[in-house]
Design a protein around this nucleic acid. Structure first.
Lengths: 352, 352
DNA sequence: CTGAAAGCGCTTACAG
DNA sequence: CTGAAAGCGCTTACAG
């Protein structure tokens, strides 16, 4: 066991190099107007001494932390089951690395709501900016951040003040529109929609796209075919069963998440309903689940990684240049599989 | 848009409350020997002023950050596809919240190796302790941390200095032993093993348990039946195909990760090999994939969440009380499903 | 139980 | 291009 070496400071380096602490500091931050000569010299000493700048002290003096705060939705199941979050987080981490930031993650406390966490991050001066990983109607965090004009970016669409909020999203309206139109094109007449939480902006957009497509396909919108629950399997069971019992029964369902879709598929399989012959199913997120499922699911690839990466890009612009209201749209792709297309289940499913 | 309120400081609070900054500081940190009276008074002023302590300044003065650093494996695919990491991370976040710590996540830089990230976290004084999410043989991070005696805990088993390293793990030796024995009991004679990366401690342990069980079941260990690759589907394809071509062909495979197992299953299905009749398959992690798969997989539930949670518990003890060498074993469960048990695939698969 | 003082390790106008 | 000085907002022996 080696003794913990007492930490070197700028002062130590300065003395050894025969310069002032200010100069050492300038070398650390790569200040432009410092002579190559002294820079080299100081750098050499720093290396010799094994010096490394204390980030905390730098933060206190400079009022920059080099850290971004990432707010995960507090409902912990999301992080667990829904591949969207790890995948988007991976994009965020990649982005943070690329732009030279560290990532502070919100810790999921039961009682505390999201806004409390945001407030704490900011008031304790631990972060330079914030990424909000989901957006719901009337979101308090967004309101707070807009109000104090703190740099942040949003994965999803702002519920308000769109012109001021940096955000990255898919065109969920179009995605749902296209998906619905596709189902109509393959001959489906009664198309139901099972959505995750109604309060989410993403849900709103998808419902709108769905309604618009129905209208253009001359299928009357029937509010009894619209179900909203949670982003879990349970929701799929529940509404799958409800749909099963309807007369006339829908012949297609759009489901806003693969996990929900699984619940529904299970119900239909149990009841001997053939997919896609009797019931076409199309969902969102194109998670690994949708590929490996018993019946591979048609699903919308939303490119979660890109969503995460770009959220950091936007945030960094917001921090460095005060940018507000920037918007990035990430393309989606509808990946068609057996649950709508049908094909011999013994053949390997199309890998996309 | 409201002007960003200039931040209150201890000094402001002190003046308004008619006490010294020292006293305010003691109220903040809930110092024991402070009179209830002054405490109340100061608390009230803090509230009135909307004061919130600056965490950075506290850190600098106190040399405690209230933050733990979590090191994700840098191979980014892991985080993406393998449900172990998000689930363990969820446990870590929960633990951090419970013990009052924030979580700083390692950002995945291509070039930087894990130890560099650990070093940077520590030398920049950004964290009080570190959680290492995986352990491999000859792990440099562990060596470094042991050497400077910095508080950390490990998910997995230390490759060295077991007596000094706080760690939390399953009994992977026993898990593999039991799983192998089980396959032998149901009549399998040639049991292959496909493992993730050989350098991982977890792989070593499982291989040992497997070998021991074979011996006790009077099945000769055949090194040609041991395959090591990566934690991905590809590995499953490759070695699944290799096993398919063997004569005599194995009649069972233990696979150390559900994702790898999927690759293998796909190969066998494509070749018309019946599972489990011709080939029993058992894997690890009991991920959501193993339940939803075409053929539900027998898999070992390792309780990733608990692993994560306990790693933080250990770490906090290490930080606060200087504890070293504590060890926690998290129980595992073998969840038996169709891939070894067989049953009518039309029946709903057993949910566990 | 409370205060005055020094200090944590940097950065940054300011002046030259 | 470089240095002296003040300061970032707290904490913590020390003394009383």
């Amino acid at each position: 066991m080696v003794k913990k070496t007492t930490h070197m400071t700028v002062k130590d380096v300065a003395e050894k190099a025969g310069v002032s602490p200010s100069t050492v500091s300038r070398v650390i931050s790569n200040h432009p107007k410092i002579s190559e000569e002294t820079k080299e010299k100081v750098l050499k000493i720093m290396d010799e001494l094994g010096y490394y700048p204390n980030a905390i002290a730098r933060s206190l003096a400079s009022k920059k932390t080099g850290t971004i705060g990432v707010i995960l939705p507090n409902r912990s199941e999301d992080l667990l089951l829904n591949p969207f979050f790890p995948e988007a987080l991976r994009g965020i981490l990649k982005g943070a690395a690329a732009f030279g930031y560290d990532v502070l993650l919100s810790t999921s406390t039961e009682g505390k709501n999201e806004m409390e966490i945001v407030k704490t991050f900011i008031r304790s001066s631990k972060v330079d900016g914030i990424v909000l990983m989901s957006s719901s109607v009337g979101d308090e965090s967004q309101a707070y951040l807009n109000n104090i004009d703190f740099p942040y970016s949003l994965i999803g669409s702002p519920y308000d003040h769109k012109e001021r909020v940096n955000h990255v999203d898919n065109d969920n309206y179009m995605a749902a529109y296209e998906l619905t139109t596709y189902l109509s094109m393959i001959g489906r007449k009664r198309i139901a929609l099972i959505a995750g939480e109604i309060g989410q902006m993403v849900t709103m957009k998808r419902v709108e796209g769905y309604q618009k497509a129905l209208m253009e396909s001359n299928i009357p919108y029937d509010e009894h075919l619209l179900f909203t629950g949670k982003f879990d399997e349970e929701t799929g069971y529940t509404y799958g069963a409800a749909i099963l019992d309807m007369t006339p029964r829908p012949d297609a369902i759009i489901i806003t998440d693969d996990l929900i879709a699984f619940g529904a598929v299970k119900v239909f399989q149990g009841a001997g309903v053939r997919i896609p012959e009797d019931m076409a199913i199309a969902s969102f997120n194109n998670s690994i689940l949708s590929r490996y499922s018993d019946i591979p699911l048609t699903s919308v690839e939303i490119n979660s990684f890109e969503l995460g990466y770009e959220s950091v890009n936007l945030l960094v612009q917001s921090i460095d240049q005060g940018v507000r209201g920037n918007k990035v749209i990430i393309p989606y792709t509808i990946v068609k599989r057996q649950s709508t297309e049908g094909h011999d289940p013994l053949l390997p499913s199309p890998v996309s």
